[in-house]
């Protein structure tokens, strides 16, 4: 069997009395797309924030390619090749779309006092950034101020930046939410394309159909706990999952 690329072991995050994430375990294998499902407030984003170093876990360990990364600050996690998007998009608004991607391209420089003085925006960097924009379909908007873009484009900009940083793994937090129908198909194709280029992806999604189609495995969180794990077809039939989504039963019926 292949060794996992990421192993999350008994991880918890408590905010005072609130157990946002409680004793969650899972593994991610190289080249797969793992889906994370769960109702609002289930702890999905908090889980991402622990992996990406925004929060230090209250308990538990995270192992990425044989190294412990829990509690490591965000910028060091990023430098290990883990890129992420934000559910509430966080563009650098006064920079252009291209410059947003260039900020990410600087990742190998920011850690070295000697490298940060070089001029940004060399021809090579710009070309590479444009390739990324081409790939996510934002090339026409390269010189537009990021603050002026509609949500759909901002979600793609988030992916573009994560793509630069995450040469090993990407964490996508609800990249589909707020997208129009025709945009969803394009984004699905893009995510498959990223997976096919050899990266591992974890994605948080509310859209069941998309999750079922894209992911090889799915874990489901509810009230901070993992209540199910398995292939999409098993998850669909899982009693606990159906209960967690009670009142929204129909959402699980995938054609």
């Amino acid at each position: 069997m292949v060794a996992p690329i990421l192993t999350v072991n008994g991880i918890s995050k408590h905010f005072g009395g609130l157990k946002a994430v409680e004793n969650v375990d899972f593994q991610v294998f190289p080249g797969e797309i793992l889906g994370i499902l769960g109702p609002n407030g289930a702890g999905k984003t908090v889980l991402f924030n622990m992996i990406s170093g925004v929060y230090r876990p209250t308990e538990g360990t995270i192992d990425f390619r044989g190294e412990r990364i829990e509690g490591l600050p965000s910028h060091l996690v990023a430098r290990k090749g883990i890129g992420r998007t934000f559910q509430i998009v966080k563009p650098f608004t006064s920079l252009t779309v291209l410059q947003n991607v260039l900020v990410a391209k600087g990742i190998m420089k920011y850690g070295h006092l000697s490298r940060i003085w070089g001029p940004w925006g060399s021809r090579k960097d710009i070309n590479e950034a444009k390739e990324i924009l081409e790939r996510v379909g934002l090339i026409e908007l390269a010189d537009r101020k990021a603050g002026l873009l509609p949500l759909g484009n901002l979600r793609r900009l988030e992916i573009a930046r994560a793509l630069v940083v995450g040469h090993t793994m990407l964490l996508l937090d609800e990249s589909f939410s707020g997208l129009r129908h025709e945009e969803i198909g394009r984004l699905e194709a893009l995510i498959r394309d990223i997976r096919d280029s050899g990266r591992t992806i974890i994605l948080i999604e509310h859209n069941m159909r998309v999750t079922m189609r894209l992911c090889s495995r799915i874990i489901v969180l509810d009230h901070g706990r993992k209540i199910a794990e398995g292939e999409p077809k098993d998850i669909q039939k899982n009693e606990l999952v159906i209960e967690a989504y009670l009142g929204r039963k129909g959402v699980l019926d995938v054609p």
């Binding site: 925004v54 990742i107 940004w120």
Partner: peptide, 20 residues
């Protein structure tokens, strides 16, 4: 690059951290 990093920090510190 340093000034680009400063731009990023000024506008979105969390996102800047996620960019190394």
């Amino acid at each position: 690059w340093a000034s680009l990093a400063f731009y990023a920090i000024r506008e979105e510190e969390t996102a800047a951290s996620a960019m190394g």
